[in-house]
């Protein structure tokens, strides 16, 4: 991987570190090397249907996960809607929730050393929480980004969506009929003392080693993700939630009122969440495989409503086997 990307620190990228959200910057650097300019990120929040929750007698979004579980059962019994959907084919969403819980399922030292701990006690605590909600039927486990799922969001099958900062704009296109009925909040918390969140999805622009014009390439990557006008365009016209602190603080971004969310300043909400994302989360050097393996292990457990804990065990085994096969030294 680092064989094909150019270290852009010498081109001036190391000077940009202050201009991006710290946890995002940690994702593109490795020691003193910088491999890309962050483009967008997906700090996670909770989008929910105010009308459905109101029908169940809930007027404020759940502040803790315990409340979330109790309210989910109420919503299901009073309205028939699922509190939300934990997608059975989307490792990104589940990893975001682990991230929020402070779980560190992966680690990579940049050389051969890989850490896989998706079956850790911390991870299983999160899994057990969701297992209860699945078992009592208060949340669903449909695959996401399928036609059925789009329908579910549009027709009130799901009363909410635990999603990333790119979700709010995305949802407006998917569930246009329900405009004005949605609202955005932070994720429910594990403790009332500190607010934390995780991340789901994001992107960055890198320069390839084979580039004939590395300086121009770097300057362009910097321009589109650093220039005020460009980042604002990305944030407001595309679904790209900004990573540059300047844009996150700019009133042109945060003050925008979204009619779809009843006039709420959704950007401001997510900009605040972005500041609470845990900075230490790491990935594996083989995430493509990890995601597809998730679908065959944890995803299957979600879909068939069997034990998530067993699913995590199977995922762990699979990731260790693959890593070892690929020549990494796993968990040593």
């Amino acid at each position: 991987m680092t064989d094909s990307l150019l270290n852009i620190a010498p081109y001036g990228a190391s000077k940009l570190s202050d201009e991006y959200t710290p946890w995002v910057w940690n994702q593109v650097k490795q020691g003193s090397n910088v491999w890309a300019i962050p483009q967008d990120a997906g700090p996670m929040g909770n989008l929910f249907r105010t009308d459905i929750l109101k029908k169940a007698g809930i007027t404020t979004p759940p502040a803790t996960w315990d409340e979330y579980a109790t309210e989910a059962a109420t919503v299901k019994s009073k309205t028939g809607a699922y509190m939300s959907n934990l997608a059975s084919n989307d490792a990104g969403q589940f990893l975001g929730l682990l991230w929020q819980a402070g779980v560190k399922p992966f680690g990579y030292d940049g050389d051969k050393g890989v850490k896989v701990a998706v079956d850790s006690a911390d991870a299983k605590k999160v899994a057990d929480y969701w297992q209860k909600l699945i078992d009592n039927g208060s949340i669903s486990t449909d695959p996401d980004f399928t036609d059925d799922w789009y329908q579910g969001l549009a027709n009130g099958k799901y009363a909410g969506w635990l999603t990333a900062a790119w979700g709010p704009s995305f949802l407006q296109g998917t569930a246009a009929k329900t405009s004005g009925l949605w609202n955005a909040a932070a994720l429910p918390q594990y403790s009332t003392s500190a607010k934390v969140s995780g991340n789901w999805g994001g992107s960055s622009d890198a320069v390839l080693k084979t580039s004939k014009n590395p300086i121009a390439a770097y300057e362009f990557a910097k321009f589109i993700n650093n220039d005020t006008e460009s980042t604002l365009q990305f944030a407001n016209k595309q679904f790209l939630f900004p990573t540059s602190t300047k844009t996150l603080e700019s009133s042109a971004f945060t003050d925008e009122k979204a009619a779809f969310y009843g006039g709420q300043q959704v950007n401001k909400q997510f900009a605040a969440i972005s500041a609470t994302v845990d900075t230490k989360f790491q990935w594996l050097p083989y995430m493509d495989y990890a995601y597809s393996s998730y679908n065959e292990t944890v995803g299957k457990a979600l879909a068939n409503k069997t034990s998530l804990s067993d699913g995590l065990d199977a995922w762990q085994k699979d990731l260790v086997t693959y890593g070892t096969q690929q020549g990494f030294s796993v968990n040593k």
């Binding site: 084919n89 399928t146 979600l302």
Partner: peptide
């Protein structure tokens, strides 16, 4: 697979498996 991601796994048919091995598992 797009409609039923949990039902159609990576190796549902041998050809599909070869494709996933090459392009997902590298």
């Amino acid at each position: 697979h797009g409609l039923a991601p949990n039902v159609i796994d990576n190796a549902y048919t041998p050809n599909y498996y070869a494709y996933n091995l090459a392009f997902t598992n590298q």
